[in-house]
């Protein structure tokens, strides 16, 4: 605890106005009764144009076509998710990612999308679309098909 306080005091002293913030993205999957889900988390601007990816759950590139909106935006380019790719997420399980993101992403019209896909089940592009705002933090958003709820917290 003391270390934490010291670190906090130090970082506050050093950083001045906050330019970055750790943001935790929590995705709870429903018990849809299938194999592990592939999830693509990515950001678009206010006009819907793709800005970049935040996380890819699922490592096999040949399945990325089923994350249809993400794939359309990126052409399936794995360089977009190099270093931010992890395992697929099982039914009923939770994916919890903490990322250090640019502060400019919030309250600036950006939206977070989650595409989901499960083997032998229907693709679910943009299953979650949520505006990135400070006011919207810690408010769970329901998904349509595979995602029970999604929350981002700062």
């Amino acid at each position: 605890m003391k270390t934490l306080l010291c670190a906090l005091a130090l970082s506050t002293a050093l950083s001045g106005p906050a330019l970055a913030a750790p943001v935790t993205f929590t995705t709870n999957l429903s018990n849809y009764g299938g194999d592990g889900a592939y999830l693509a988390l990515y950001v678009t601007d206010a006009s819907g144009a793709y800005m970049g990816s935040l996380w890819m759950a699922g490592g096999k590139a040949k399945y990325y076509t089923h994350l249809t909106d993400w794939h359309r935006a990126t052409g399936g380019d794995t360089a977009e998710i190099n270093g931010i790719t992890g395992a697929s997420v099982g039914a009923g399980r939770q994916l919890n990612i903490t990322l250090d993101l640019s502060d400019a992403l919030f309250d600036a019209g950006y939206e977070l999308h989650i595409d989901a896909a499960v083997e032998d089940m229907r693709d679910s592009p943009s299953e979650v679309v949520v505006p990135l705002t400070r006011a919207g933090a810690n408010t769970p958003v329901k998904g349509r098909r595979y995602i029970r709820d999604f929350t981002y917290g700062m």
């Binding site: 330019l19 970055a20 759950a57 395992a87 399980r93 990612i97 903490t98 990322l99 250090d100």
Partner: peptide, 13 residues
């Protein structure tokens, strides 16, 4: 441009 340069994601699942 989305991430703080040099930062590392922390994943729990």
């Amino acid at each position: 441009g989305l991430f703080t340069p040099g930062s590392k994601p922390v994943v729990k699942q």
